[in-house]
Design a protein around this nucleic acid. Structure first.
Lengths: 133, 133
DNA sequence: AACAATCACTTGCAACTTGCAAGCAATTAA
DNA sequence: TTAATTGCTTGCAAGTTGCAAGTGATTGTT
């Protein structure tokens, strides 16, 4: 399931960037085609990594959200981020990475807290992985 | 680079199972086609995650080995294993997983030690992830 | 009320990637 | 000398991806 080009990026956007809607993923800059995006979202739902919710006040829109199983991927994503940074496949500044690495546990706790509280502020001020995570 | 069906499995086999040769990967049970295997190995070499060495005493054979960058993926793989186990996509017994989780740091240290020393004994007595890691 | 815009998708199709089976060169084993 | 082994490569059918252009159900604007 995670063995494709887009799924982990979607999960990352949900987890650390606070993205929720189809449109946000689509415009995320990575350039995923809408048919593929729809397909990946559905597959992630099928394996219970994400779920959907109605948006109160706009019946066109849907909010995607990580499930418990989905948020449990946080350690993986964090390690991948750190790895990418260490080996320079990221645009995250070195200092930020060192912080993340030194405070692994609290970063993970904060990530989970944000999820629970539906806090949509980006976890850190934007980082990107060039080619794949 | 890691966003495909096979690359992480190859890395895992190198890291925790002690596989080294083309043939070992091919027979690993996951059923990768030889053309794809050759392609993935080459791509992993290109991004400096693995490297090759001559086998002394058999000039037909080649040993693949993780680079420093490759072994640095250990935390990612370990977390992915733990995640898969927690959400039942693994055949690793629960007790083993709990051990891995509780001793994360020492497991990682041991993994790195095995790599340095070229210790080929499997890290734990075989575990598999059903569909993708 | 009528019309335009927005949102989350679908559809059609060409281009690329994968998987399967067979084959091959260079050794090494019998 | 012949057979087997190792690490690939090749050809081709089948599957997946990406692009562009819709579509239907709202919601916003005049």
């Amino acid at each position: 399931m995670l063995g494709d080009r887009w799924s982990l990026l979607i999960i990352r956007d949900l987890m650390v960037r606070g993205y929720r809607t189809f449109k946000e993923f689509q415009q995320a800059g990575e350039g995923i085609a809408t048919n593929i995006l729809a397909d990946r979202l559905q597959k992630l739902i099928n394996v219970d990594i994400i779920s959907t919710e109605q948006v109160p006040g706009d019946r066109r829109s849907i909010h995607y959200r990580l499930t418990e199983k989905g948020i449990d991927l946080a350690p993986v994503l964090l390690d991948l981020l750190i790895w990418g940074a260490r080996h320079e496949e990221t645009s995250a500044p070195g200092a930020v990475i060192n912080q993340l690495e030194a405070n692994r546990e609290s970063v993970l706790a904060e990530t989970r807290r944000r999820w629970k509280d539906r806090d949509l502020t980006p976890l850190i001020p934007k980082f990107q992985k060039e080619n794949e995570l």
